[in-house]
Amino acid sequence: MSPISHGFRRRHAVPEGAADRVPPGQYVTDGFPVLSAGPTPHTPLADWTFSIRRGSATLKSWSWQEFQALPAEMVTVDIHCVTRWSKLDTEWRGVSVDTLLEQVEHDAAYVMAFSDGGYTTNLPLADVTGGKARVAFNYAGAPLEPEHGGPARLLVPHLYFWKSAKWVRGLELMDEDRPGFWETYGYNMYGDPWREQRYQGD
């Protein structure tokens, strides 16, 4: 039985009509908070590549220019951060991960997204395919700001937002699941906001 805090009350109203879009324990913000473990990397676009790797082999790699030539799509999605803010109707433009993975032969079951600065995060293949994930480079109609993960970040909106790796530079294909950066520090391996999978064991 949880102790009652007399005098504590709800102050954040859920926006009208959005009750079924806000996962448990989240509140809606109009801002766009920034959370990251280290300095913001600034990789020049001339040096940027996006690679698909398996073990030590690079199966496919795109330069920024080549990446921009891939078919991109606009999406409007709700995003949910494990620190409990959610932001509704965010607009992104990016390349579907399906488009990228179509260009390699593989039978992997998991991927590890890897980023400038050494950040990694693990995801089941089924959660980055079937139209569920993108590599996004525009936000709200403008190039994605470095502090929000630009030039490009992974966008996997159905999972907590730490899975949407900022400054993403590629995907490593894996047979078995392995913890990424935050997952090593006790955060959940999967991170479903609707089941409040914030930490290990949730």
Binding site: Y119, G186, Q200
Partner: peptide, 11 residues
């Protein structure tokens, strides 16, 4: 950025 924590259920 290697991790050293031992993950454990938080209650």
């Amino acid at each position: 950025m290697a991790g050293t924590a031992v993950p454990r259920r938080l209650t």
